[in-house]
Design a protein around this nucleic acid. Structure first.
Lengths: 134, 134
DNA sequence: TCATAATGTTTTATATAGCTAACTTTTATT
DNA sequence: AATAAAAGTTAGCTATATAAAACATTATGA
């Protein structure tokens, strides 16, 4: 709603990671965030404080982390792009899975809502093309 | 050749900018690099030293900047992706030019050679599809 | 319940990339 | 050639994001 004044890629990654942990393990712990993002535990704390300051997560020291509605919305948007882009590179372009994952992970931050929508529609149309030109 | 251990996005942008200045103005000056990248003159010097250390540019204090063969190769690769991606977003997807430019500028760093090649071929095929499914 | 392990936090340090402002060198003008 | 303007450099500062290591808290399990 408050059309957030641009989150860094890193903070978007934190939100996405927290959403995934919430989904797969019900709660997000500092250590799991660190493991998933391949960074150290100590680095996580400061970033959680930032996200809490921006009211994107609920955070109390030594407590579990949960997404606020606004944080969840952003996380889902990022995740959606991530999943779509990875699938595009891997399944449609035939890029190996690891590279597709890495590329999607970088590009998920680059497209705004409108651009992503157009991209998705373009790919969907081509994918459904009965003539299989591609 | 020495399959460089990954340049930062910023350094890639410097190389691309230098190439463009070389092309349009024959030489690249510190001030023009700063103007083009919308940063301050003082910030440029240190980065030029880094690029010189990595033997990607020829740099002497108070002199003109030129790309080494290796620097030029990287710059051309980045530029090629940039041009292609901008065109894809603008002409093919119909994204407004400024957004297409900005998005291309971010994404040009995300795809490796192989992924870009596949992406380019995919778009070319679709673009040439006689059935115009897209 | 108490000791140990696991997890979370804090502090200090590092790297990157930028800015400002003062200073130096080069270029242009007269 | 002398001076002013423009361009380039330097030094010190800032912000972001991370690491390492010491410390604090919580959880586990004997």
């Amino acid at each position: 709603m408050t059309e957030n004044d641009h989150l860094s890629e890193s903070l978007e990654d934190y939100l996405e990671t927290i959403l995934e942990l919430q989904t797969t393990k019900t709660v997000a712990r500092s250590k799991d965030i660190a493991d998933k993002m391949d960074i150290k535990r100590g680095s996580v704390t400061g970033m959680l404080k930032k996200l809490a300051d921006s009211q994107l997560i609920n955070y109390e020291p030594y407590g579990y982390v949960t997404l606020t509605p606004e944080g969840k919305k952003i996380a889902q948007d990022v995740e959606q792009r991530h999943i779509f882009l990875k699938d595009f590179f891997h399944r449609i372009l035939g890029v190996d899975e690891e590279t597709a994952e890495r590329t999607g992970c970088q590009m998920e931050h680059a497209m705004d809502k409108e651009t992503f929508k157009k991209f998705r529609e373009f790919v969907a149309k081509v994918d459904a093309c009965p003539h299989q030109c591609q």
